[in-house]
Write a protein that binds this DNA or RNA. Sequence first.
RNA 1: GGGCCACUAGCUCAGUCGGUAGAGCACCGGACUUUUAAUCCGGGUGUCGCGGGUUCGAGUCCCGCGUGGCUCACCA
Length: 497
Amino acid sequence: MLIMDELGETVDVATFVDETDQRRAKLDYWRSRGVDPFGSRFVATHSSADIIEGFRDLEGQQVSIAGRVMAFRGHGKASFFDLADLAGRIQVYAKRDVLGEEHYEMLGQVDIGDIVGVEGEVFRTRRGEISIALSSFRMLSKALRSLPEKWHGLKDVDIRYRQRYVDLIVNPEVRGTFISRTRIVSAIRTFLDSRGFLEVETPSMHAIAGGATARPFITHHNALDMDLYLRIATELHLKRLIVGGLERVYEIGRIFRNEGISTRHNPEFTSVELYQAYADYHDMMELTENLVAYASQAALGTTRITYQGSEIDLTPPWPRVTMAEAVKQRTGVDFISISDDEAQAACSEMGLDMPADATRGACLSEAYEEKVEAGLIQPTFIMDYPIEVSPLAKKRSDNPELTYRFEAVCAGRELANAFSELNDPIDQRERFLAQVAQRERGDDEAHMMDDDFITALEYGLPPTGGMGLGVDRLIMLLTDSASIRDVILFPLMRPKE
RNA sequence: GGGCCACUAGCUCAGUCGGUAGAGCACCGGACUUUUAAUCCGGGUGUCGCGGGUUCGAGUCCCGCGUGGCUCACCA
């Protein structure tokens, strides 16, 4: 192909060996024909799916549609190309007789990856494919880089995560996952809104990082000359709002934890936390199983799913079992009825090293996490967590070593964590003090003292049920994604170079 | 942070025992008016992740580094 360069010299595009240079040279081709290769507004009358689904009514009608050219099949005086838009793909058929010599030649200069707007008549080809018989087209944006291969797509996970835009162009299942993500988050909102919850926003920058056991990110505010923590949970602010009388609140928010990265951990992730005044953890179980089932129905149309080869039935109600029972069933050890020393011995027999001062509650929790959790494939509520690992949950009235706390477990992992909230400010202060003592012993993930939160409790927190759920992990479950990075559009990556 | 693995053309991948860098798609040129992974003919476009070393000679062997994946530890 011959083009004119900036100096008015005629240059053969073929002299540019690099494809990006060839495509850059084509900018001059389009400009020389009075076409802006980075065009402007285009009004589409239909999407690809509109045309395919509405073919019966649209056959023979004129339509216009915009999208990215994903394949081009030239046949001399006629050619076919595939146009992709958000809804899918549609084939376009072009004939030189119809377009005219000049425009047909220009069409031949369209590359795979270019964004064009087309106008034409809906018809079905001899082979049965619903197509558009092109009457005119406009270059809307010239692609200077070539797309990954049409058949194998983009596989290199490094590029897929760093250049998600390319991943989204060429891997339709990736688009599907993120569309599901949006539907799931939207379903969570609809479900909670319909139950009278108010969606609220609380600060992401905290003077005290509380509400969870985790190492926070630290940042600095210049004008106030103070360090701040990025939040590790939304819990303590949301409970302040229950004190304030909002009664039912939730927040879908970004959480930041300065910890390891893995297939299940991204430094920033999304949680939904909700609090319901006058409710308890039994209400939270009912709410959790129905919320998850609702989200599954919204995204997949079913509550029976497959996750990484396992058939999982999310249909409520889910089994409820206490942690002590679950551990006893699996290991034969009844941690409730033995001494701290016996519990440590039992752990060490299971191959778990516990510190010499470990209580039976701490041992129970460890035995559960190491020996039981990974084996729980079907959704299950594990109830009554030991008080040592539950500094914000209300004590059981019949056993002060346990709390009204549960975790929902599915596919061997925690999906949600909930409790009857501790609303006794005196007890809460003692629990914080115990955490602060742990902190001073070097546990930098132990909770910090939050005096204002205690003050809030002193004004009176109604009996409240609260629940937190890892939104990314729910999405992983519902989209059958093995890695959290597959459900986060732009997962954290170390900068290249 | 530890262990294992990967990195070759824009993309997907070959590359034997250490001996001139390969294919398909994409791209360029040509043929082709209902194809659809279109087909046919011609063209290989490269800092073999980076830096050292061994060797007459390194994509290949050795050392270091980088990025990523999986996994263990920590966690949600």
